[in-house]
Nucleic acid binder design. Sequence first.
DNA 1: CGCATTATTGAAATAATATTGCGTATGCGC
DNA 2: GCGCATACGCAATATTATTTCAATAATGCG
Lengths: 166, 166
Amino acid sequence: MPSHRLDPIDRKILSELQADGRMTNVELARRVGISAPPCLRRVRTLEEQGFIRGYHAEVDPRELGFEVQVFAMVGLQSQAEADLRAFEDRCRSWPLVRECHMLNGEVDFILKCVAPDLSTFQTFLTGELLTSPNVGSVKTSLVIRGAKDEPGVPFDILEERLTEAG
Amino acid sequence: MPSHRLDPIDRKILSELQADGRMTNVELARRVGISAPPCLRRVRTLEEQGFIRGYHAEVDPRELGFEVQVFAMVGLQSQAEADLRAFEDRCRSWPLVRECHMLNGEVDFILKCVAPDLSTFQTFLTGELLTSPNVGSVKTSLVIRGAKDEPGVPFDILEERLTEAG
DNA sequence: CGCATTATTGAAATAATATTGCGTATGCGC
DNA sequence: GCGCATACGCAATATTATTTCAATAATGCG
């Protein structure tokens, strides 16, 4: 059990599972260069320690009938902590809102939304988001096309930095 | 093999695997109410037909030393198709850039970036992004805190619409 | 250093799961 | 109703996950 600092094998495991989360443990063990039992133990430990939060199938939104993706920049009227929390809670309750991040600068939040079509999004926008208490300004931008959509973090960067540092 | 339209069982499969991509096929079969063999056949078909693009472990960026997340709004000088493509290609080559979406409106692209620390991001920003050909304006916003980060699409919405329609 | 302690490993055995083969049911066009 | 197509589930087999355990490598301490 790596007490808190990960060794190269752990990082390789995370990197491989980020790229293919359904790889068999046998294959994973082969790739990271150890046998299956310790490999599985490492994966379990990484899960327990929170390095791995979960596993997800990546589905194709278009194929499933979600044609529309929108980024919404939201400014609130009050930035008091309680009001921020209230808005975040509301975002969590909206299925169309997949991501909600609090930002610095003029815009308070950025929301990534997914909807079957434009009218569904418009209904949500005018009926829910804009009429929500404390919401000041909302600027929306439709995604014309996606150019890159990589999950998680760049492990290659991590390796670079660690080899430099020793 | 559902020729192209998914039945309720397929949608349930996708929904379950989106929520837990490492569920065993036996458990998945139990949840969707069929036996293991046809369940596995459906999963394979969904993969082949592109409804499932892949599986990924969700890792914790903070725990792995990626403390900084930034959204960058990029405006280009030329929006000619070749220039757009060139910029997208460049984004794909930058590990720090995890997502790149082309938008309508005044901003041409939104980029989601992840970095170990602010200085790493600044180095990327000034040394790569800002000095990139055809890049006009870049406005960056640091993520203060994440409030919601759900993967994929809201299947509950899908079910609602389909039951309404019949 | 050298020994004791602790962690981690891998081979082997077992349990569970994935996968294949096949016979059967169900629906649909004729 | 008949035959084709599709999808199902049972049973058998192959593969994988998981546990057990002895051996090895790392760690700390006298």
